[in-house]
């Protein structure tokens, strides 16, 4: 069973999370539910710092042994930091998707975009429906 979804952040229906750092940036990653579906992640393609991204466009690519999956950005803006540790240890995402396994930090173009995302309770329900 996946870990509970923290209530301090917002969620997309593609299973990404966005944590508002209250300095105009968010930290983005994938949910524990998503890492469980992907299983053993063996490769992460990170965006370059400075890259401009638009909400729900591709931010990164995760590969398990069997599959290739896109990670979409929860908000528009500019990539200001990437989790370089994932390049050598992609399995960090499997171990700690909500913490050490973060993927990138994005300086938001429009903080109001976060209102389009689900809160933890809505996302809990969303997963429940998807698995039934």
């Amino acid at each position: 069973m996946s870990k509970p979804n923290p209530t301090d952040r917002k969620y997309t229906n593609e299973h990404e999370w966005a944590l508002d750092n209250h300095d105009g940036t968010i930290t983005a990653g994938i949910t524990d539910y998503a890492q469980e579906l992907l299983t053993d992640i063996v490769f992460v393609e990170l965006p370059e710092i400075g890259k401009k991204v638009r909400q729900f466009e591709r931010l990164a690519v995760l590969e398990s042994v069997k599959s290739v999956s896109d990670v979409y950005t929860p908000a528009s803006g500019e990539v200001v930091a990437i989790n370089q540790a994932l390049a050598d240890q992609p399995e960090i995402i499997n171990k700690d998707a909500f913490g050490e396994g973060w993927i990138a930090k994005i300086k938001m173009a429009d903080a109001a975009e976060l209102n389009k995302l689900m809160d933890a309770a809505a996302y809990d329900l969303f997963i429940k429906e998807e698995t039934q």
Binding site: T39, V42, K66
Partner: peptide, 11 residues
């Protein structure tokens, strides 16, 4: 079955 636990462990 594509996997029981995970592909790498089974491999």
């Amino acid at each position: 079955p594509v996997q029981y636990t995970n592909v790498i462990d089974e491999h």
